[in-house]
Simulated scan of single mutants.
Amino acid sequence: MSDKRVTMKDIAKEAGVSTATVSYVLNYSEKEKISHETRMHIFEVANKLKYVPNMNAKTLASQRSYLVGIIINMEGRNKKSKIYQYYDLSREIQRNLYPKGYDVVLLPAKEMEKDIVIGQKRSLDAVFIFDMDEERLKTIANRFYVPAIFIEGYVEDPIFCKILTDYEKVLQIAEKQLGNSFYVVMEDHFNKNVYETISKRIPPKDIFVNRYDSSLIQFLREHHNQKGLVIGELLGMQVENYADNRNISVVVNSEKDIMLLPDTKVIIVSNKKKAEKAVEIMDRLLRLDNTNEVERVTYIRPEWRDN
């Protein structure tokens, strides 16, 4: 398909779904109920086939391409529970960009050098970059001469804008919900600051990092009848299968459509707020609107609901 423009029909054939389903997913329509697994599969196929929306009309009418890239670290250590969070955040960003006339291209980076070169060939107005280590963040940022906004990734250089979860506040809320002693179950973040912040409060033996070589079941057995903070809704659903849900609090990314048991305590770190802030910063940087006054570090503060 390298000599032929990839269409939604091509994606539908490869994914084994209808063209209408592909259209609903890629246009982020909420009119039809489509499972998260199907959405993720369609996004993955679209990226595999290097699908690019038709932006010719918009580009001719403006010097901008009206195309924004989202770079997602897809290395092998990222498990599906974490990738789900990436796609949910991508969807929220797209929802904020669509009324402004922008389309989004997902750039999942498995082979960093190769995949970023592909992104460079597209005329992007800005890029959002999810959870990468500082060395790679710098490498990527130096490849793009457009605003680069990091979400859940930290780089010391003050020229770059970062949007981060306020994990210190998350731990404070967890103390109110669970008491002074609790374990933590979390994803394997490339941003080392996340683990460092948590480990200042929680002993390493009480922190489970969701890697392929680690056993969540074994960890929960070792912490039987203890209280725990779980960061991530899909991880929370897994923990509910092996621990008393009354003893856990789960960090989720939306106050709506929560998939956990009704009486599980939750802490909300809104992907909607992350997306709104990211697009607001992008707008100001593109307009060159007092760029020196644009916040370089924005912390998204959590909210909580005690069921």
Rank of each mutant, 00 (worst) to 15 (best):
V297K: 05
K31M: 03
V105S: 08
L137H: 11
N73I: 00
F144H: 08
V104F: 02
G228W: 06
S2P: 02
P53L: 07
V6P: 09
E175F: 06
T165D: 10
L234G: 04
I173R: 02
D10Q: 00
R305W: 02
I300L: 11
S181N: 14
F150I: 11
R77G: 00
K121C: 01
V22F: 01
V155M: 06
Y242D: 14
L67K: 10
E44N: 11
A20G: 11
S249N: 08
V25R: 01
K274G: 03
Y28I: 00
A57E: 07
K256R: 15
E240L: 02
T21R: 00
I281E: 11
A278F: 13
K13V: 15
D306W: 14
N253L: 00
Y24L: 10
M40T: 03
K272G: 00
Y102A: 04
E30L: 12
R201T: 14
Q172E: 12
D206E: 13
L220I: 01
L164S: 07
N245T: 09
R136K: 12
L97H: 03
L107M: 15
D188N: 07
E156H: 10
I159D: 11
N73M: 08
N54R: 06
S214H: 03
V185R: 12
V230C: 03
E32F: 07
M55N: 13
N245G: 03
H223K: 13
A57H: 08
L261P: 02
V266H: 01
Y28N: 05
Y87V: 03
Y102F: 13
G76K: 11
A148C: 15
A12N: 05
